[in-house]
């Protein structure tokens, strides 16, 4: 069964006005033509290297960009454009942010009070206790101050705070840095639980391996844009990935060959023509560096590549054992997840 589309982002661009030398002003484009979908009851993970502007995506959706930023494109929440009134009404209630940094907690306020956002009603007290208990935080956490908690506990407090309102969409911005593997997996597991209860989760992270363990969909983020959005199960095999960058990511995993790829990801504001990945792409053709590459539908998923067939045909360079039923396999995997 197709789940209801909760959040749909299309053609999102975010840029900053900056002063360069002296008095000249320039526009720094950080996110360009980004698209993604979040469905209720699913986790969509946006995966890209840190410092590539992913966090701005969260802030952009919530209308929390800094003063010198400007944004264009379409953000639909339940089919309605998410701006002005609607945004005011749903932000912090239906759509909540689990922030990246511990500094979002007030160091001088007890944790319980922050989770309840200052409310002292019996209902709020009970919900708060319930949430803390659910995330394995001891009951005395309520009366502690943030500095008394470990990084992993703080992440769980931040999740509790977000869930206080029983939201429909949770946006989690890099929830795992600084946590060791066990703690990170635990936090990721909590997001899985949240999604299983019918909430949509947008997970923004740099850690593909962790994201693959819990997410339903992966949006591959590269140099400020999305290159491919697919079922997480597509990452089980290289052959089911369409974009050459996704394939390169797969091959770079330590357990899948640890193969590097020359070159670097363009930095925000670097100008380029045509395909952003072309300079590093093994399958690039002449047309790749000339025309604007659309984010288009190929075999039921969005891909920003004009010749994904080519990448698919040739399989991985130096690895020819491509199985023809890869597509079917992906579908079976999907069945397992649902």
């Amino acid at each position: 069964m197709e789940k209801q589309i909760l959040l749909q982002v299309e053609g999102l661009s975010i840029s900053f006005a900056q002063y360069t030398k002296g008095l000249r002003r320039r526009n720094l484009q950080v996110i360009r033509d980004l698209g993604l979908t979040v469905r209720s009851g699913e986790i969509t993970a946006v995966v890209g290297s840190s410092g590539s502007g992913k966090s701005l995506l969260a802030h952009g959706i919530l209308g929390l960009l800094p003063y010198n930023a400007s944004m264009s494109g379409e953000i639909l929440y339940k089919g309605q454009e998410l701006t002005g009134r609607l945004l005011e009404n749903v932000r912090g209630r239906e759509i909540v942010l689990v922030p990246q940094s511990v500094s979002y907690l007030d160091p001088l306020m007890k944790v319980g009070n922050q989770v309840r956002k200052g409310r002292k009603t019996a209902g709020a007290l009970e919900r708060c206790r319930e949430l803390l208990a659910r995330y394995g935080l001891p009951p005395d956490t309520e009366s502690r101050y943030p500095f008394e908690l470990s990084g992993g506990m703080i992440r769980r407090v931040l999740i509790s705070t977000a869930l206080m309102e029983e939201p429909e969409l949770v946006i989690a911005d890099e929830p795992t840095p600084g946590l060791d593997l066990t703690a990170a997996k635990r936090v990721m597991g909590h997001f899985r639980e949240i999604a299983d209860e019918g909430t949509g989760v947008l997970l923004i992270t740099h850690d593909l391996e962790l994201a693959l363990e819990v997410a339903d969909r992966i949006a591959v983020f590269y140099a400020g844009t999305t290159l491919e959005e697919m079922e997480a199960s597509a990452f089980q095999r290289e052959e089911t990935l369409l974009h050459p960058y996704s394939q390169a990511l797969y091959r770079a995993m330590p357990q899948h060959g640890f193969q590097p790829l020359a070159g670097t990801q363009p930095y925000a504001g670097d100008s380029y023509e045509g395909c952003v990945f072309a300079p590093r792409c093994p399958y690039r053709g002449e047309e790749c560096s000339i025309q604007e590459i659309p984010y288009r539908e190929v075999r039921g998923r969005k891909v920003r590549c004009i010749r994904p067939e080519l990448a698919e045909m040739s399989g991985s360079p130096g690895k020819m054992d491509r199985s023809p039923d890869a597509e079917n396999l992906a579908l079976t995997e999907r069945g397992r997840m649902a």
């Binding site: 290297s49 840190s50 740099h206 593909l208 391996e209 990511l249 770079a252 330590p254 590097p260 990801q265």
Partner: peptide
């Protein structure tokens, strides 16, 4: 390389 993407990680380690 914890904060880096997999390709950069592999590049640097190689």
């Amino acid at each position: 390389t914890t904060m880096l993407d997999l390709i950069t990680q592999s590049q640097i380690w190689h």
